[in-house]
Design a protein around this nucleic acid. Structure first.
Lengths: 125, 125
DNA sequence: CTAAAACCTCACATCAATGTGAGAGGCAAG
DNA sequence: CTTGCCTCTCACATTGATGTGAGGTTTTAG
């Protein structure tokens, strides 16, 4: 498929798909006139990429994982696996950060509500 | 305390503390010569700010929450509470994003390991 | 054949938190 | 008073994913 269709099917802008290609996150073949052509499996691949990017992964990090996505015969397969593991750690600690932040928000909301409840003029509000 | 001490006690660079002030995240009084002076409660406040920033909140969003941190008498108290709630949603959906990403990583690691196990020449490795 | 739609490359813009450096003034201790 | 450390403002740099627009070629549909 051409880049427009891939864009429609993944929700990524055409510009971004070119960017992903430039960064080595997806591959494409070129027609004689230079237009990109993508295989079917580019769709799940882009979805994977977007999921990781949304989780704060760097395009560089994702690129380094890609050997795992392709074939286990790659030379850099081991380092790709290692990269996966490292990114998993990063994500887990990200989750912990978010949980802590949410707890801080909850605490603030609680005290704020409590403060308000203590105000005489606001008792009815 | 002056800015250097606040920096030491919070781990935020002096530059950042000035930035936080500029964005309305922390307040300070000024000495005659223009030096910033911070109260004790600036410390937990900076910690709160950093936690939220680490969780991907915008300085603008944090600024809008600050009335809750101060006094329930603020006029923008209600919108501040609303901002808190909105940020809480954002964080929760961020957590879900991370969980999904982690699941995708796990799935990829599983298939990769499986592929490798299937390779005859790698049986021993 | 022609017009519209899709594609190409190149390159500059943006946002937000942070770094960094210059140049100048403030403050405490010897 | 001087030395050394702290602070001030101003302002430009960076990083990384994305937007946007220009100017030109290709593909597709009528």
């Amino acid at each position: 498929m051409r880049i427009g269709e891939l864009s429609r099917r993944t929700g990524a802008s055409v510009r971004l798909l070119r960017y992903y290609e430039e960064k080595g996150l997806i591959g494409s073949t070129r027609s004689d006139s230079g237009q990109r052509h993508f295989a079917e499996d580019a769709v799940p691949r882009v979805e994977f990429v977007r999921r990781l990017l949304a989780a704060g992964a760097t395009s560089r990090a994702i690129a380094e994982m890609m050997p795992c996505f392709d074939t286990p015969l790659e030379e850099n397969f081991d380092s790709a696996m290692e990269r996966l593991a490292r990114e998993r750690l990063r994500i887990t600690s990200g989750i912990e950060d978010l949980l802590r932040a949410r707890k801080a928000l909850d605490a603030l909301m609680d005290t704020a509500r409590e403060h308000r409840a203590r105000l005489p003029e606001n008792r009815a509000g």
